[in-house]
Design a binder for these strands. Sequence first.
DNA 1: TTTAATCCCTATCGGTATAGTGGGGTAATG
DNA 2: CATTACCCCACTATACCGATAGGGATTAAA
Lengths: 135, 135
Amino acid sequence: MLSRKTKYALKAMTYIARQEGKKTVQTAVISENENISHKYLEAILLTLKNLGYLGSKKGKGGGYYLLKPAEEIQMVNLLRNIEGPIAMVPCVSLNYYEKCEDCADEETCSVHLLMIEVRDSTLKVLENKSLADII
Amino acid sequence: MLSRKTKYALKAMTYIARQEGKKTVQTAVISENENISHKYLEAILLTLKNLGYLGSKKGKGGGYYLLKPAEEIQMVNLLRNIEGPIAMVPCVSLNYYEKCEDCADEETCSVHLLMIEVRDSTLKVLENKSLADII
DNA sequence: TTTAATCCCTATCGGTATAGTGGGGTAATG
DNA sequence: CATTACCCCACTATACCGATAGGGATTAAA
């Protein structure tokens, strides 16, 4: 299950991406239109900024904007950066690998092998999706 | 991410499935071989029993055993029963559906549509796997 | 018939993460 | 210079997770 934070982040990103005409989008506007707690959203947009996805402008008329065109923002990376691993168990994660304490040999662990299959099928979907594709 | 509970449950099920010769498998044996906290495992096996996957025999020489042949135990159902939804957001779950509080219209929600694709690709893998397939 | 093995049930607990709130800055624009 | 809006820190309430403890019920075997 995705955390609410991740879901909010995705919704905010798509919202901003849709406002191509405007230079910036205000947090208050996003929070209102997407029904997200304002303060909570601020924190999320801040992390998106620190991750390099968004730029911001302070002062009157300020707000957030995409740093890269939506076509170049891959959903896989976005999800990984906010939520963490795509895989269902750490021992099959490509980017957040952790060895299981319990199982001695990964190659013979039936759970391990099954979860690799699941991971790969998920990746196949997410790797071919950009932010532009989903708006 | 799968909870540890689910992972333990899967490992226990596969362990029991592999012991075709024996009539019953003891919790202590599973806990030792799979490195799972004994008391915690007891609780898990109990829920697997209540879910209808396992039968049990009390007393000396007792233990757990599969109620159905491994070929007839689908991984999708097992996962759903223990972990819950396969989907990444409740609003695309087939078996545990919940409406989002925030988004007004699911059909136009970009997150919704993306997560349907992810769900379907995961289901495609899990629906064609039985317990027998992964041991 | 006693004893030991084994499942079964209830309660509890510390840790951690999540979702959200509050207050107060600080920087830039008009 | 005042307003707007981003930025940062601390705090809290809730919930779940993994695990532990202690005992009770049942059965097979000695």
